[in-house]
Simulated scan of single mutants.
Amino acid sequence: MTAISSSMPNGPTMSPAPRRSPARTRSQSVYVRLKDGIDAHCDRARAAGAEIVQEPADQFYGERQYRARDPEGHVWTFSQTVRSVPREEAERLGDLHIEGWHQ
């Protein structure tokens, strides 16, 4: 799955505009879900010149994620599901209330 959205103000994917953008405004955020191999994927991205802005880490909601900035300045989030987390557990671990939840 790939999703493209506006950057979240003050969020983890907030980044400057691509280096070639004359406006120098915020960029889009790109989210890519991988089936497997996220750590090897991160290693390949780093070797190809991406700046790893968040190393691969397990998240409380059951995903393993890393973030990389490409040479043009776009921030990409790569994610892989590592376990199924019930909504109640995610709320407790994240100290938040979640409206709706995936299965």
Score class of each variant (00 low, 15 high):
residue 1 M to G: 09
residue 2 T to Y: 12
residue 2 T to V: 13
residue 4 I to M: 04
residue 6 S to Q: 04
residue 8 M to Q: 01
residue 8 M to K: 00
residue 8 M to L: 02
residue 11 G to Y: 03
residue 11 G to P: 01
residue 12 P to T: 01
residue 13 T to F: 01
residue 13 T to K: 03
residue 19 R to Q: 11
residue 20 R to L: 12
residue 20 R to F: 08
residue 21 S to K: 12
residue 21 S to V: 13
residue 22 P to C: 12
residue 23 A to G: 15
residue 26 R to K: 12
residue 27 S to A: 15
residue 28 Q to W: 09
residue 29 S to E: 04
residue 30 V to A: 07
residue 30 V to T: 13
residue 30 V to S: 04
residue 31 Y to V: 07
residue 31 Y to H: 06
residue 31 Y to W: 02
residue 32 V to R: 12
residue 32 V to T: 05
residue 32 V to P: 01
residue 33 R to L: 10
residue 34 L to P: 02
residue 34 L to V: 14
residue 37 G to M: 11
residue 38 I to F: 03
residue 38 I to Y: 09
residue 39 D to K: 10
residue 39 D to F: 12
residue 40 A to Y: 13
residue 42 C to V: 12
residue 42 C to T: 11
residue 43 D to W: 14
residue 43 D to M: 13
residue 44 R to L: 14
residue 45 A to C: 15
residue 45 A to D: 13
residue 45 A to N: 12
residue 46 R to F: 08
residue 47 A to C: 12
residue 49 G to F: 02
residue 49 G to R: 01
residue 51 E to N: 10
residue 51 E to I: 10
residue 52 I to G: 07
residue 52 I to Q: 08
residue 52 I to T: 11
residue 53 V to I: 13
residue 54 Q to A: 07
residue 55 E to I: 14
residue 55 E to Y: 06
residue 56 P to R: 01
residue 56 P to F: 02
residue 57 A to Q: 12
residue 57 A to N: 09
residue 57 A to H: 13
residue 61 Y to P: 00
residue 61 Y to E: 00
residue 62 G to V: 06
residue 63 E to K: 02
residue 67 R to H: 08
residue 69 R to V: 07
residue 70 D to F: 03
residue 71 P to K: 04
residue 73 G to I: 09
residue 76 W to L: 06
residue 78 F to W: 06
residue 80 Q to M: 07
residue 81 T to V: 08
residue 81 T to P: 12
residue 81 T to Q: 08
residue 81 T to S: 01
residue 82 V to K: 00
residue 83 R to I: 00
residue 86 P to N: 10
residue 89 E to W: 06
residue 90 A to F: 07
residue 92 R to F: 10
residue 92 R to W: 08
residue 95 D to L: 04
residue 95 D to E: 12
residue 95 D to Y: 09
residue 95 D to Q: 13
residue 96 L to M: 08
residue 97 H to E: 07
residue 100 G to K: 00
